[in-house]
Design a protein around this nucleic acid. Sequence first.
DNA 1: CACCCTCTTGCAATCGATTACAAGCCTCCG
DNA 2: CGGAGGCTTGTAATCGATTGCAAGAGGGTG
Lengths: 345, 345
Amino acid sequence: MQHQRPKIVDVARLAGVSTATVSRVLSNPDVVSAETRRSVEEAIRQTGYRLNHAARNLRHRRTGGVVALVPNLSNPFFSQILAGMAAVLAGAGYNLLIADTCAMGGETLLGYAEPSRADGLIVLDGTLPAEGLKRRVPIVLACEWIPGIEAPRVKIDNRAAARVAVGHLADLGHTRIGHVMGPPGNVLSEARLAGTEQALAARGLPPPLVLPGDFSLDSGRVAGAAWLALPAQERPTAMFLASDAMACGFIGEVQHRGLAVPRDVSVMGFDDIELVSHMTPALSTIRQPREAIGRRAAQCLLAMIGGEALEGDIVLPTELVLRASTAPPVTAPAIKSRAAGPARL
Amino acid sequence: MQHQRPKIVDVARLAGVSTATVSRVLSNPDVVSAETRRSVEEAIRQTGYRLNHAARNLRHRRTGGVVALVPNLSNPFFSQILAGMAAVLAGAGYNLLIADTCAMGGETLLGYAEPSRADGLIVLDGTLPAEGLKRRVPIVLACEWIPGIEAPRVKIDNRAAARVAVGHLADLGHTRIGHVMGPPGNVLSEARLAGTEQALAARGLPPPLVLPGDFSLDSGRVAGAAWLALPAQERPTAMFLASDAMACGFIGEVQHRGLAVPRDVSVMGFDDIELVSHMTPALSTIRQPREAIGRRAAQCLLAMIGGEALEGDIVLPTELVLRASTAPPVTAPAIKSRAAGPARL
DNA sequence: CACCCTCTTGCAATCGATTACAAGCCTCCG
DNA sequence: CGGAGGCTTGTAATCGATTGCAAGAGGGTG
């Protein structure tokens, strides 16, 4: 009572027991007799005692926290993944610390990979240096990954998903198909490009027109401008963009310049972020199970923290979502097909 | 070397000094002689020593972490605020823990308000119970706030911003104006509704048609359906929605049902999330300085942790952003104004 | 009644760093 | 030459909880 904040000894004194007993009531109630337990609980209530986590963590040699390294917090793609992770981790008594890798230097970042800072790490950014991350705390890679690092990966089959997406465009009858890539060097960018090329090659179609991008809205807008700048007869009649955000930017630019989707160009995205089903036209895309990715990554990490030695990848399924932004190409020189009915599905 | 992980005594032994000196080199290098410092630094390098934060925090009676309580991580509105906070906090050596209040019960949440868990709290959710949050750790409220709690607030003038938004619609000539609210009971919902009513009353216009919502995309879609369900001549010719997300949902629904914005209805949002400038039509809205809100909230909290006693609110400016979703009402019964040119600005 | 076993509980060491206090050394001045 | 004062460094207590070990209590058995 005289202290600023009651400690375990205050509770012990009031209850007339030792600190060891109080501690046991807190963390292992079953070994304490019912009567003692009740009086300790009463003392805890009276003193308003609250456990000091720093002390417990010091003794347990753990931190009770897990860090997620995210490339860009402003990207809505990640928020649902984080929500999934947070749910699983909270259930297991872990905090989720979120760090934005683009907001901090490498030095600061590596500080998170220390056992005294976090019990584990979930890395969502494939562009981090592999060096500092090696063998410090359990690590799980989600979505993206870092080639040099041996750690469980929770991901999707990006190449296959891209094949499905481009296959859909080809099935609609498109033959000139373009692709807007993610950031250069990113494993996802490469895989989605490769899938695009495979799908076209498998059907004997010419290789895609490839435009640069970086997953961001604005790079999609720039790609839209680049597409518009092409002579009309050279423009791909269908575009597959490596992220929904880019697809939004692309469609926005095309529409603002007076053309229509899918009449003048079919557009296919990737991710299925919530928003794209509300746009006009609603975006056809590849759905990534974002929350599931978060959950699995968190479960995986908890298992590793628990001592299990996981290896190998967890590949979650994707889904082709067909909405209104893709349609067969207008073959004849557009006569009066004012609005080619969107292929709602 | 024989230990799993080198501790401060290992460094001390190797450097031939006491642990106190090593500690001083780490946290207060100036008081140590240059020569000793160098040999300690060398020993640190050789042993690969890394500080144990749990131990330091225990001794310092602090945690080095700040918790942000966010109502919904999946909402892109918050991500940029968090990015701003993270930047400031990282600069001051604090971690940012992010907790999603809708993913966890009140018990868990209150656990975060303890000094042994976090050195401070930034609350972005106005619907939390005021009880448990009182007088535990420094708290800053951002965006939303909790009426019962006395803590610095970083916010915008929601009422004035709503007046500006609705004033714009009225200036365009609209007389039947509707409003889609945020979640009931939310302070932001109330303020934005009040501003809407004030703006209309000040111009002698009839009170708004008010539709329910909850800031989410889908509630905007539902509001769109409700608007469509009205007899055409009773529909407001302009709608002010309390969030951009709802505006997106609203516009999507209206467009999917074959009507056009702003020809058939002008739409005004709130927030200016990145995406809305890319939609078609680009959304007119009220810009909130999201990153600045995050930064100021973090700075404010750091000041409080440092012992300053802040009181009173910090009100950041908003900005009316005019794009293409608002236009004068089509007064004559639509004759052949196929596409009333969007009032780009 | 002695002995063994189980159930509770307390003692005291421990987790790893920080820091008040004191001691040692050196220099400078009277 | 003695003492004051500044610099550096070491000693040991401390932050608050956890837990291995052992002791004491109570019950059952031969």
